[in-house]
Write a protein that binds this DNA or RNA. Structure first.
Length: 345
DNA sequence: CATATTTGACCGGG
DNA sequence: CCCGGTCAAATATG
């Protein structure tokens, strides 16, 4: 009790700091150093709060406790939940994207806070706040505390990333696809085999492994487990450092469009309450934005054409899919089947 | 049985 | 043609 109330104090303090920072943001825009240290301070405060809250689990990956409760809604229901949310979204039109992204100031702040808390690291990306929001580009760059730093290598890989899976989001049209690439270092628990990749809050599914030139260790490729839901773009590459097998270099790429945390904006107050405190994933608020965005993308998706190996069944409209699901509670074997929508060429 | 990983083949950019 | 990235069948896992 003591610890938790102290933690709450810390959290409040952190919030205050963040608010402070927010209000001063306009003035400090050209003071990167100050901004940086402010962020650091805020992060520190939240980290401390986390430590207090985590006393039983001093694991180096404290954020893990924030990861979704696997039992509660993982079992088969996860996808259904996704669909539920999807369904809730269906009625809305693409403009929602703008509507939600517009009030960025208010919303995004909560969002960022959430990120800080859950990931102990934020990518504040002070460059282009507005566009960022508009693009639904509010990814959590998860990291595991203390080791490593970010490197917003915002490569303009608009052309590149599309080799296969990338094509779809490509044409968000607006500006250079800031398909963010974040690198960070994560040290693996020194116990046992260094093989086991560190866990961040997300659920990933390995889809490949490759030997990389000049690297002792192979690089493994992960994508978000929920790629089936609107084709979540999030991916990450994992690679052990040549010189330090206990350290991974994680490269995050793309953004999670797979929020299964309830969005208060969509599901309404009652549901939101439940879902929110249920400690879900990072970036809760962004849900509406991202889902809305993906919805838009889906709609214009059908005209992709040119499929090579596996026939590119064009993505059905969300509506149909959702309806299908809701009409027939029949467990259509696997959601994968339904959503096997290869949105790429 | 559904879902996750492994692994060699494939794709396309440089 | 090489190489990084991805696919997908086979296999493992629970």
């Amino acid at each position: 009790m003591d610890a938790s109330s102290e933690a709450i104090q810390l959290i409040l303090h952190g919030c205050a700091l963040a608010k402070d920072l927010e209000s001063n943001l306009p003035t400090l825009a050209n003071q990167p150093n100050f901004l940086s240290s402010s962020c650091k301070q805020i992060i520190r405060v939240f980290n401390k709060a986390m430590d207090l809250l985590n006393t039983p689990h001093p694991s180096p990956y404290s954020h893990m406790i924030f990861s979704e409760p696997p039992e509660s809604w993982r079992p088969t229901s996860t996808e259904a939940m996704d669909l539920l949310h999807a369904h809730a979204l269906v009625g809305r039109n693409p403009f929602d994207v703008h509507m939600f992204s517009a009030p960025k100031i208010g919303v995004a702040n909560d969002l960022d806070l959430g990120l800080e808390i859950t990931t102990s690291g934020v990518d504040l990306e002070l460059g282009q706040p507005m566009e960022y929001a508009a693009a639904g580009d509010v990814e959590a760059s998860v990291r595991s505390r203390s080791t490593g730093e970010f490197q917003a290598t915002d490569t303009s890989d608009s052309g590149r990333s599309s080799s296969m899976g990338g094509a779809l989001v490509q044409r968000t049209g607006n500006r250079r696809e800031n398909r963010s690439i974040r690198k960070e270092r994560v040290s693996a628990p020194r116990a046992g085999n260094p093989e086991i990749p560190p866990d961040d809050g997300f659920t990933w599914r390995k889809y490949g492994q490759k030997d990389i030139l000049n690297s002792r260790f192979p690089r493994s490729y992960y994508r978000c487990t929920h790629k089936n839901f609107y084709g979540c773009q999030a991916k990450k590459y994992l690679q052990r450092l040549d010189d330090d097998p206990y350290t991974f270099e994680v490269t995050y790429r793309g953004h999670h469009t797979c929020q299964y945390s309830a969005s208060p904006l969509i599901l309404g107050p009652p549901a939101s309450q439940e879902a929110m405190h249920g400690t879900t994933q990072p970036q809760p608020v962004s849900t509406s934005i991202q889902l809305g965005l993906s919805h838009v993308l889906m709609q214009r998706d059908p005209h992709v054409g040119s499929s090579h190996v596996q026939g590119g069944k064009d993505t059905e409209t969300v509506v149909d899919l959702a309806d299908a699901m809701f009409n027939s509670g029949s467990s259509s074997s696997s959601m994968d089947a339904i959503f096997s929508s290869r949105q790429e060429n």
